[in-house]
């Protein structure tokens, strides 16, 4: 497979971190996409903003820390993180509670992202 820079893959995350294993499996997909040098953006909407919380302690429920894996994504060349601003407000979260440097977007901006992406994958 040849590296592809002209396509933009928008990965939309909407699930809370431990309601199922989907949050983890979405990160696994992002790592695979990064390995194949895909141009990907991550957009956290709804309950998925909880994936970004620092200081998660999921060992108590026999799970691996989702935020820790997310924090590793920049090492693999993924640097475009966006979050639904309204969802952050709904959960009362501020920047310093989040594990990644993230850009807040409005519904209008999310619509533009959807329109501009070559493909979207919903997790």
């Amino acid at each position: 497979m040849t590296p592809n820079t002209h396509k933009t893959l928008l990965v939309i995350l909407s699930q809370s971190p431990y309601s199922s294993s989907l949050a983890r499996e979405a990160v696994d997909y992002c790592l695979a996409a990064a390995a194949f040098e895909q141009n990907i953006q991550l957009l956290f909407i709804g309950d998925a903003v909880l994936q970004l919380l620092n200081d998660q302690q999921p060992a108590n429920i026999s799970q691996k820390n989702v935020a820790k894996t997310l924090s590793a994504l920049p090492i693999y060349g993924i640097g475009n993180f966006f979050v639904d601003h309204e969802a952050l407000v709904r959960y009362g979260l501020s920047d310093e509670q989040l594990c990644l440097p993230i850009r807040k977007v409005t519904p209008r901006q999310m619509a533009d992202m959807l329109a501009n992406a070559t493909h979207t994958l919903n997790f």
Binding site: M1, N4, K7, L9, Q15, S20, L22, D28, Y29, A32, A33, A35, F36, Q38, T118, H119, T120, L121, N122, F123
Partner: peptide, 21 residues
């Protein structure tokens, strides 16, 4: 097979449609 097959699918397809969870 591996997740690379999903990456390839996004490369090769005009549309990718997700169903679920």
């Amino acid at each position: 097979s591996g997740l690379g097959q999903l990456v390839e699918a996004t490369e090769q397809s005009d549309r990718v449609v997700t169903f679920g969870p």
